[in-house]
Amino acid sequence: MNVKYMYSLLAVIALFLLAYLGVEAAGLELLFGIIIPYVAVAAFVAGVVYRVMGWARSAVPFRIPSTCGQQKSLPWIKPNKFDNPFTPGAVVVRMILEVCCFRSLFRNTRNFIQEGKIAYQLEIWLWVAALAFHYAFLTVIVRHMRLFTEPVPALIKLVETVDSFFRFEILTDTIRVGVPGLYMSGLVLLAAVAFLFIRRIVIPHVKYISLPADFFPLFLIFGIAFTGILMRYFSKVNIRAAKELTLGLVSFHPTIPQGIGVVFYVHLFFVCILLAYFPFSKLMHMGGVFLSPTRNLPGNSRAVRHVNPWNYPVEVHTYEEYEEEFREKMIEAGLPVEKE
């Protein structure tokens, strides 16, 4: 047993019980269906603005881009344009590749001793799982927009169609899967989260550096995906009523329709917790990646002089000025001067 992940797991279980009992036993649909979502969205927006503006206010005194290739140098040395960007345009390309393809994560290597020498091996699985996780999550968010828009835009319908393109159907007396159409993104998300969690407890040195703040979002997202899948395929909720609630929220005419099903409120509460927790946690790397000085600065310190913006204006007394001031006294004392 490891306290680091047990606390996180217990926290998520406590949140589940809070929402479940709050709606099922105490009948607090108003709190969980309307008040908490609004508070969570407000906290998310305010938190993101606060964090990003905090980063914007921090001065960046030095050029500290991580250089992953040959810098622009003499004309006959071939520079690596995007891995060591020299111009703002190249920085933009590098940022797009970083944000969309996680290239710095792709470079992740594992080192070990082989025949007395250090050896490196490409460690690709974290990159694969991270990519799967982020894109699955994006797809999930985009296709959830069908519950927040009326009429549903064609683009969102298209994403849904693509996501449910493969029809898995298992129809036996006990297992009935396939109707409604299975979304790939939900399964990929669940699998990727499971991988990211298992990685943290199986690899010893990753386990050593993992904190409750690393496990909590994983459990929370697992809970969100799990309750979502539960609602869609197993303990079905009333989708019409669910959309009435979500649309009511986003059109500022909040209502609590009857008979949605308690799983929906648990799912919604988990999402609210994630939203409110987001700006104040490691998840804020969503904004942080754009503001990393190691990524968003061109590596041009050899060509352009960068002066620290908060340098104190130092009073300089040069030798010329010194000699100008004391020339006569220096000549009197027999000291050598540059100008007679």
Binding site: F44, V45, V52, M53, L247, V250, S251, F252
Partner: peptide, 22 residues
């Protein structure tokens, strides 16, 4: 930041405050 918030609040302005009962 403005672009992000505009994207995030997409459902709020897309429905432009119209209630759409089921």
């Amino acid at each position: 930041l403005v672009v992000f918030i505009a994207l995030f609040t997409f459902p709020f302005w897309y429905n432009s405050g119209k209630a759409a009962p089921g």
